[in-house]
Nucleic acid binder design. Structure first.
Length: 479
RNA sequence: UCCUCAGUAGCUCAGUUGGUUAGAGCGGCGGACUGUUAAUCCGUAGGUCGUAGGUUCAAGUCCUACCUGAGGAGCCA
């Protein structure tokens, strides 16, 4: 007999028919006559209720069907007599595939804290919350590829090991095969990297953008979707040392085209989640309500599904950094001295509190900020005519802040070299990047979307460590 | 890295001003109950109070250092 997934069994209307299901026990209830086993196989948030006649199977076997154990059950699909479900499986055969010692198994049929489950990351796929997140994450991965594929973009695998340290996107993890107990040295005492695997210092990538630009200068529209590594000592709910980033890069796009694409992309992903993950989003919405039930009304977040729909309704607000500074300078919290970092004038980078004010209180919708001062942005961003600002854009979302960072790139060879020299970027090492500006250069743009930040928004989770299966953060690389 | 808070039973927590034998709920185990839904009811076992020092007649409680976790900030996606 072929196994049927629980999601299919629950949808089936063929009562009286026999099914074989396999999965893990969530809870068991009952009395001397009958046992009710709530079974889950990861195919859906919902459990299948197995009804087992105690006389038929014996107390000893049913005792083994406890929380955490894996079972194979053959049974007849019935209309449920109980009220919690439409159908249930009246068991004819029960096989315990793997026993589970409840005295050692850490997951109990009760609420666990997210912190506790983080320490049990190897088992947390068996919980409602994490299986829901995993399914939504899969749907979002699929939707990313679907969106770009529909638009004729080519997916590019950019290198994970890089020798360029010029990306300027943060601290890097060094990659080496040198024996750290006996590091080869030159005569002058410096490390002899010619003895290392690649014959030069190498690191894990902090961004695929530079290589993505090379691909776009031939394929026109490309995107990357790969792991990204930052060795920053960041301890926040929004940062990981290893995360997944989506970086489209488009030839012939200016900053406006870039913003249009970013907005369309985000809306497509959110629409996809609403259309395809209703059960899991409902569960996550209820989880969030439960978590926040003791918060004051004005501290509660918007209901999850309502929030997702809300983002789809309006155009994102677009304004320049200079305009944002004006709004902030004249804002109530600034005048009342409520900002920890008061806005005094043009030039400073915006702090989290400022971004949150703009998004959550002033506009109450996603905001795209553009044209930042060149001093606070990367070397590759295109200079505006006035020579003070660059064609950068940051997409700011409520709750999570910067979800996308992007720009139109500097395509003019001389201007780019000048900017690199100003910012102490090693021009010689970047010869390959610069050659794209020498040979048939074109205006082009791109952006980076932090996949886990998208996941935070879509799932309503508060900590980025809960939307990736195995989070890597400072002092934590277990599993 | 900085600031703040926390670490007590398998889990979530309480533990008053330092004072007798450290408590509860859930979970586990035993029992009761013809269909449960976080089942219910009765009973029961379970603790080196994060680690190491220190103060004190006396420390879960006070002090110091360290470890771990969380929240905020910075860096950013």
């Amino acid at each position: 007999m072929r196994r049927t997934k629980i999601v299919e069994v629950l949808k089936s209307e063929e009562t009286g028919k026999e099914f074989l299901v396999k999965g893990w026990v969530r809870t068991r209830r009952g009395n001397k006559q009958v046992s009710f086993i709530a079974m889950n196989d990861g195919s859906t948030i919902h459990n299948l209720q197995i009804v087992a006649d105690v006389e038929l199977f014996g107390e000893e076997l049913l005792r083994r069907a406890n929380t955490g154990a894996s079972l194979a059950v053959v049974g007849e699909l019935n209309q449920s007599q109980g009220t919690g479900q439409n159908v249930e499986l009246l068991a004819k055969k029960i096989e315990v595939i793997g026993d589970c010692d409840v005295n050692e198994y850490p997951l109990q049929p009760k609420k666990h804290s997210l912190e506790f489950l983080r320490e049990k990351a190897h088992l947390r796929f068996r919980t409602n919350t994490f299986s829901a997140i995993a399914r939504v994450r899969h749907a979002m991965i699929f939707a990313v590829h679907s969106f770009f594929s529909l638009k004729g973009f080519v997916n590019i695998h950019t290198p994970i090991i890089t020798s360029s340290d010029a990306e300027g996107a943060g601290e890097m993890f060094q990659v080496t095969t040198l024996n750290l107990d006996n590091i080869p040295k030159n005569d002058d005492g410096a490390i002899d990297f010619s003895k290392d695997f690649f014959g030069r210092p190498t690191n894990l990538t902090v961004s695929g953008q530079l290589e993505g630009e090379l691909a776009a200068m031939g394929l026109a529209d490309i995107y990357t979707f790969g792991p990204t590594f930052r060795a920053e000592n960041s301890n926040t709910t929004r940062h990981l040392a290893e995360f997944w980033m989506i970086e489209p890069e488009m030839a012939f796009y200016d900053l406006n085209d870039n913003m249009d694409l970013a907005e369309e992309f985000l809306k497509y992903l959110i629409r996809y989640a609403l259309d395809n993950c209703a059960d899991d989003l409902n569960f996550l919405s209820n989880r969030l309500k439960e978590e926040e039930k003791n918060k004051k009304a004005d501290e509660k977040s918007m209901e999850l599904i309502e929030k997702l729909k809300f983002v789809l309704e309006d155009d994102f607000v677009r304004l320049t950094y200079t305009e944002a500074i004006e709004i902030l300078r004249n804002s109530k919290p600034n005048k009342k001295g409520q900002f920890k970092y008061p806005i005094e004038g043009y030039g400073a980078d915006l702090q989290s509190e400022h971004e949150r004010y703009l998004v959550e209180r002033h506009f109450k919708k996603p905001v795209i900020l553009t044209d930042y001062p060149k001093e606070i942005k990367a070397f590759y961003m295109k200079l505006n005519e006035e020579n003070k600002t660059v064609r950068a854009m940051d997409v700011l979302f409520p709750q999570i802040g910067e979800i996308i960072g992007g720009s139109q790139r500097e395509e003019n060879y001389d201007k780019l070299v000048a900017r690199m020299e100003e910012m102490d970027i090693p021009v010689e090492e970047m010869w390959w990047y610069l050659e794209t500006r020498k040979f048939g250069t074109v205006p082009h743009s791109g952006f980076g979307l932090g996949f886990e930040r998208l996941m935070l928004f879509v799932t309503g989770m508060g900590n980025i460590r809960d939307v990736i299966p195995f989070p890597r953060t400072p002092k934590n690389a277990e599993f």
